[in-house]
Amino acid sequence: MYLRRIISPVAAVVAAVVAAGSLSACSSASSTNETAGEDRPIVIGTTDAELPEWQVLEDLAKKEGIEIEMRNFTDYATPNQSLAEGDTDTNKFQHLKFLSEYNVGNGTNLVPVASTQIYPMPLFWKDHDSLEGIEGQQVAIPNDPTNQARSLNLLASQGLLKLKEDDLLTPTPADIDEGASKVSVAPVDAAQTPSAYGEGKPAVITNSFFERANIDPSQAILYDDPDSPGANPEVMFEPYINVWAVQEKDKDNPKVKRLAELYLSDEVKAAVQKTTGGTTIFVDKPQAELQQILDRLEEEASK
C-alpha cells in the first residue's frame, strides 16, 4: 500500500510565492524538472485527480517503473499555464477545441501527444426521460465559449434551436434565430448548471459537474452523437477529442506516450466507464492527425 501524491492548488500557490523573488521563477521550475533525472516522477496536471481511474493508471505505470505525481486544479485555465511554465510534464483534462483557443489566446504552443476520449454533451431535465414537453422551456447552458457553442449545436441538431447559419463551429446566442426556435437558452457558469437542473430547468451539464453533483449520467434525455446520420465530424466530433498535452519540445516523450497507451488499457477504460455511467467514447487517433486538427482549429480561432 502506498500513498498517492496529489498536490493541491493551494500548495502550488505557496510554492509559487516562495519562488517569486525574481523573474526566473518559471525557468527555475523547468530547470528543476530537467535536472531531476530520468527517474523522477511524471507530473500530470488535471481537474479530476480524485477519480478512481487515475489510481488504476498509476498502478499500471508503477509496474513498468513509471512513477506518477498528480497535480490537481480547480479551474480550466491553470493546468495549461502550469504546463507552459514547466511545472507539470503533461496534462489530461481538455479537448482539442479548448487547447486551440488557449494557445491562440495566450501565445503558447502546447501540442497533443495522444487522444483519450470524447465525453458526449448531455442534456438533463429533472423528472423527465424524454424531450417531450420541452418546447417553450428555457435551457441552462454553460457560458464558456467552447461548451456554450457545443450546447447550441446539440440543441440545434434536434431542431430545438434554429441557427442563422448551418455547421457553425462556435455559435453564440447571437446566432440563434429566436423566432424559429422551440426553446430559449440561459447561459450560466458551468458550475451553476446543476443548480438550474435542481430547480427543474432543462440543463446541459458537462462531465466535470454532473458527477460532482451526484447526477446519474444515465438520466440524460439527450446526448450529442457524432455517429448520427448527417452529423458533421468537423463540428461534432473532432474538436472535442480529449488529449494528453505537452510542450512542443516534449512531443516525443516516451514516458508520456506510454502513459497514454496505458490510459487506453481495458483496466482504465473500465474505471472510466464506471465513473461516467458507460457514456465515454474512447478515441485512438495518430498524433500527426491530432496535430492537423489542432492546427485547423487554431487557424479558425485566429480569425
Score class of each variant (00 low, 15 high):
Glu300Pro: 00
Phe210Val: 05
Leu297Gln: 12
Leu262Lys: 09
Thr275Ala: 09
Leu264Arg: 12
Lys257Thr: 08
Leu222Phe: 03
Asp225Gln: 08
Gln247Ala: 07
Thr206Ile: 05
Ala270Met: 07
Ala220Cys: 06
Lys249Gly: 04
Ser228Leu: 11
Glu234Pro: 01
Asp266Trp: 00
Lys251Gly: 05
Glu248Met: 09
Lys303Ile: 06
Pro254Gly: 05
Val243His: 01
Asn207Ile: 01
Lys274Val: 14
Glu234Asp: 13
Pro239Leu: 06
Ile281Lys: 10
Lys255Phe: 05
Leu290Arg: 05
Gln219Trp: 00
Phe209Trp: 15
Ala270Ser: 10
Val204Ala: 13
Ala220Asp: 02
Ser228Pro: 03
Glu267Phe: 12
Ala260Tyr: 10
Val283Asn: 07
Gln292His: 04
Asn242Gly: 06
Thr279Gln: 11
Ser218Arg: 13
Gln247Gly: 11
Lys255Pro: 00
Val243Pro: 01
Pro233Met: 12
Gly277Leu: 12
Leu262Cys: 03
Arg258Tyr: 12
Ser265Gln: 10
Gly278Glu: 13
Lys274Gly: 10
Lys274Ser: 14
Ala260Trp: 11
Leu259Ser: 05
Ala245Met: 07
Ala231Tyr: 02
Ser265Val: 09
Ile293Glu: 10
Leu222Gly: 05
Ala231Phe: 02
Ala245Ser: 15
Gln219Phe: 01
Val243Phe: 03
Lys201Phe: 08
Val204Asn: 08
Gly277Phe: 12
Glu234Lys: 13
Asn214Thr: 08
Ile215Tyr: 11
Asn242Phe: 09
Phe237Trp: 03
Asp284Ile: 01
Thr280Gly: 04
Arg258Asp: 11
Phe209Asn: 15
Pro233Ser: 14
Asp266Tyr: 06
Val256Arg: 07
Thr280Pro: 07
Glu238Tyr: 12
Met236Asn: 04
Lys274Pro: 01
Ala288Glu: 15
